[in-house]
């Protein structure tokens, strides 16, 4: 079973190089505050700028919670990340879903950012895990994310 990749685009009023730098280098500042996956709110979200670099959040106590890693680091046009959080928002080293970001200059100015999240079927590969998620973990996390997103609006 496969699930079609998610594709999302957004346009920002800056150059690809700057959009790339902001997206990857200042994620902790633009990512909706309050409820990430760590036990406490994040003070930073770090993508180490190199292949195999870690992707993690850090809280005020310095505790780090992994999200994934860098699979390909190609500024200013592309970064390929491994999103390794399962549907319960828990880091799973055995789970790799690809999250690709591309940054392209638009003829009329600005940069189009395309996000593609693929291999989603891997999130549901274990039907037993899915059952557990649907039964227990999901509703609360969904509510959390809805709250988070609304706060950010």
């Amino acid at each position: 079973m496969t699930i079609a990749p998610l594709v999302r685009t957004v346009t920002v009023k800056t150059t690809p190089a700057r959009a790339f730098a902001l997206f990857t280098g200042r994620m902790g500042q633009w990512w909706p505050k309050g409820k990430t996956v760590g036990a406490q709110p994040h003070v930073d979200i770090v993508i180490e700028p190199r292949p195999d670099g870690r992707w993690f959040e850090r809280d005020a106590d310095g505790a780090e919670t992994l999200w994934g890693k860098v699979l390909a680091w190609e500024p200013p046009g592309r970064v390929l990340l491994a999103w390794q959080l399962n549907a319960q928002w828990t880091y799973d080293p055995d789970l790799v879903t690809e999250l690709e970001l591309t940054f392209a200059a638009r003829p009329e100015g600005g940069t189009q950012v395309i996000l593609e999240h693929r291999n989603l079927e891997r999130l549901g590969d274990s039907a037993a895990l899915l059952a557990e998620q649907l039964g227990n973990g999901w509703p609360g996390r969904l509510r959390d994310f809805a709250d988070l997103a609304d706060t950010a609006d």
Partner: peptide, 19 residues
Amino acid sequence: LRDWLDQHWARALDAFQTY
């Protein structure tokens, strides 16, 4: 699950754009 992630990324990208 897909719908839920779709919302998640839509909002993350919105936040990025705003920033």
